[in-house]
């Protein structure tokens, strides 16, 4: 029986226009459609595969505002068993450190956790540090940037892929894993999964419920501050190359100049 916690984040849809709010430079949640981060669909998929290969229970853990229930519901409709939703106004603007502390406290609420699966980075913040911070806070081994994962008895084996190459990792459970987009193809929720999702237990907790000091979370307590933000300049027209029979060479020269080849 593998007891798995999957971290799930709701993010603005990458297809919509993503903005920071003008008042405090935090994410403007109203300006974009909110979806479960795609990497987390893969995290859930991996947890479900481990569960289906043997025995297990999959708990979804999400820190986010009320409407993050949609992301939780999606994970439950894919087949996760239950969820913990940490929702608290005081978390608005929290940095990665605060988020990791809250997650660590919430994981502590789940009895006998064997494995925590996260995405390697969220598509909005793109910090990519939360899994490692969490491992540090919980004193657990971290296997990050994983593209292949196997659980065998009391240990976990993983292939970690970075720009430097592939590292074969092995650790004892409990452990923390972060997965990349190569890990799997997530399933679509079945109709039965969709219907069952509403009946699955979702425990909603506040920062106080977790025993986390509210002086450690939120925008005011973040270790970094955004002083200024400006929108990305509109894309300029690309370079136009006339093909006089040497189009291929010109394209290659352009790519070399951009250090792409």
């Amino acid at each position: 029986m593998t007891n798995i916690v999957v971290l799930v984040k709701q993010v603005p849809d990458t297809y919509s226009e993503r903005k920071l709010s003008e008042s405090d430079h935090t994410l403007d949640r109203e300006s974009a459609d909110a979806v479960i981060d795609e990497i987390n669909e893969r995290s859930v998929e991996e947890a479900l595969k481990i569960k289906e290969a043997g025995e297990g229970e999959v708990t979804v853990l999400c820190v986010g505002p009320d409407r993050a229930t949609d992301a939780i519901r999606k994970a439950l409709s894919m087949g996760a068993d239950k969820a913990i939703h940490v929702s608290d106004e005081s978390l608005h603007g929290s940095d990665m450190l605060a988020t990791a502390k809250v997650l660590a406290a919430a994981i502590g609420k789940v009895e006998g956790v064997d494995l925590v699966i996260a995405g390697n980075e969220a598509s909005d913040g793109r910090g990519g540090a939360v899994p490692a911070m969490l491992a540090e806070l919980l004193g657990l081994p971290q296997l990050t940037h994983v593209r292949q994962l196997t659980v065998e008895g009391g240990s976990v084996k993983a292939d970690r892929e970075t720009e430097e190459g592939i590292t074969h990792l092995e650790a004892n459970l409990p452990a923390i894993v972060s997965v990349t987009e190569k890990i799997n193809e997530p399933r679509y929720p079945s109709f039965k999964g969709i219907m069952a999702a509403k009946k699955k237990p979702v425990e909603t907790l506040t920062v106080a419920d977790l025993g986390v000091d509210s002086g450690e979370v939120g925008l005011g307590n973040a270790w970094s501050t955004v002083l200024e933000a400006s929108p990305k300049p509109p894309r300029t027209a690309g370079e136009r190359v006339e093909d006089d029979g040497d189009g291929g060479t010109k394209v290659a020269e352009y790519l070399v100049a951009q250090k792409l080849i």
Binding site: R73, K74, S77, Y188, I194, K198
Partner: peptide, 15 residues
């Protein structure tokens, strides 16, 4: 219903 909206979304993604 929430379920029908989720069903629509899932079908749309598959399609």
């Amino acid at each position: 219903s929430e379920e029908r909206l989720a069903l629509r979304k899932a079908v749309g993604e598959l399609a």
